[in-house]
Design a protein around this nucleic acid. Structure first.
Lengths: 309, 309
DNA sequence: ATATACCATAAGTTATTCCTTATGGTAACA
DNA sequence: TGTTACCATAAGGAATAACTTATGGTATAT
């Protein structure tokens, strides 16, 4: 059986009018055109759908089934169109994001604002480590990723959208904590609690010290940013972390920013997507949104401003 | 938007395989043929449905919607085919009957047997008077009607399928009740309880007496067969009724058949349909069933047999 | 760098779809 | 009985749908 939508459409009109001529008028067709479509449909099903008794038309039992089917199929088509239209106009849709755990805090705040503008959009947010992020992109399991600078050679497209100031933090009673200015040399003489090898923050710090011909002393390394901050809070050493992860600790005064020479180091947050990926409308809008608005939005956050921010 | 089933079918295959070439093989098509169908579908929706990242294919969000739609539509089509097939093979369907109230009793017994043979068929039975029966036929609101001889000139097709013996009944203690033979003259001298003017039974009786040059004395008339029998039970007079309506009263011995000369009068039960009506498969089968089987089935009923039956 | 797997595109052909006009037949109705 | 309303059928033509083969491009893998 190989029906066509055309047949169904014509049949539906006939079933409604119970009159070929009127159905033809509605469809802007000649009457024989309608006859033919119905005839074809009856040939397809190999059973009469309409019976003519005297002047009047009646649907057969199968005809009634067919009418149900035609209506439901056509309604579903309308629904589909509606759904697609909504998706296009971002009244509906799903945004799949993934962020580096370090970025989690501020991204959620960005997302909260974004979600208010597009209330019908559902969002899923995966918070995970760099390796997993790349994996998600690789498998096309998310639209966009927010992370530090992505590695080369993964067929990725990335764009920096926000400065990411790395600052030195210490226990609030650390002897360097209240100094107006701490020279780089002094800082370098301290031991640091750092992320594992390969972490973006760690390599940025290492590069920074190397560029200034200083050694970077990693006293302890941990795989989790929260753990690093906690270690610093406990006085295990200084730490270099993204300012954006510090809102809570600064407010609670469990950590202090050390006024270290040359800091903050400015790195960037990137929006990353797979090369060649055609973003969904909503992902595209989100991308534009953070590219344009992230700077401004960060101003609302309760974070210290550095002169060149 | 003007999709085709073909597009949906091809799309479904591609969405399942996530591979054009394999989908093409499954459909016994060349790969470009598949490409074209997908392309057309994307043009219809004006949005990408499939995205290619590197070597792998992925469905876009709209693509996923489309996949749902395609599957559900195709499933519905399968369901429709199944339904039609069942209707054709009478595993499903609906039989709309209407019977004269006089025929109700025995028709229900016929129907009970018929329903056992076609257990999946639903049946509706309208029990009503002659006028309404003709009206139902006129409006094509039932497949078949069972009644006495239908009037001419209504564009009806009818066929007798069963003899309808009309007998004279009386109160069991009526003075004629136990007589071995009652002459027609004696009968004619009695007063009768009869149906209203226009009733088939009444005109048959009248004609019968007229043919024998006797007068037919209608003492009382009623519009309902049950009421007539009741009147006879109460000794209000003799009655002429169809033997087929008497099973209960004979068993209960509340009425007796009078051995009247010339009785039973043989009339017939007819199956009636509208001229030109194309019966549904199940109606046709029912028609055949009663034409062939009604005689035999009546033998199982607890009714007296007359010599020439 | 080359081979491989895979999809896109182009060009051309065939078949089918879909519609039109013209005409015929039938039931209802006056 | 003629008229009217309505559907069926026939014939013909325009559009297009649906494939095919051939070829090109691109990402991946070796």
């Amino acid at each position: 059986m190989n029906l066509t939508f055309r047949q169904l459409k014509v049949f539906e009109a006939v079933a409604r009018h119970l009159n070929f001529t009127n159905a033809a008028k509605e469809l802007h067709l000649s009457q024989p055109a309608v006859s033919m479509q119905i005839k074809q449909l009856e040939e397809q099903t190999n059973t009469p759908l309409i019976e003519k008794l005297g002047k009047k038309l009646y649907l057969t039992e199968v005809g009634l089934e067919m009418q149900d089917y035609a209506r439901s199929t056509m309604q579903q088509l309308v629904d589909l169109e509606e759904t697609i239209a909504q998706m296009k106009s971002m009244k509906r849709g799903h945004l799949k994001l993934a962020v580096a755990s370090t970025a989690n805090h501020f991204v959620i705040r960005l997302l909260a604002r974004f979600a208010k503008i597009y209330p019908k959009i559902s969002i899923s947010l995966d918070v995970t480590n760099r390796i997993s992020l790349l994996d998600l992109l690789e498998k096309n399991e998310c639209d966009l990723v927010i992370m530090g600078r992505p590695p080369e050679g993964h067929n990725l497209q990335s764009a920096p959208f926000l400065e990411n100031p790395l600052v030195v933090v210490s226990h609030p009673h650390h002897y360097l904590a209240d100094r107006e200015q701490v020279s780089l040399k002094e800082i370098a003489s301290e031991g640091f609690v750092v992320r594992e090898q390969g972490s973006g923050t760690r390599s940025a710090a290492e590069r920074f010290f190397t560029e200034h011909d200083l050694e970077f002393k990693a006293k302890m390394d941990m795989s989790n940013n929260r753990a690093i901050k906690h270690a610093a809070e406990e006085g295990l050493g200084l730490a270099i972390v993204s300012l954006h992860t510090l809102e809570l600790e600064l407010k609670a005064k469990t950590l202090k920013i050390v006024n270290a020479e040359g800091f903050p180091i400015y790195r960037h947050w990137y929006v990353v997507q797979r090369e060649g990926k055609r973003l969904s409308p909503i992902a595209m809008v989100f991308n534009d949104y953070i590219m344009q608005e992230a700077d401004k939005l960060m101003l609302d956050f309760d974070l210290p401003l550095f002169k060149n921010l």
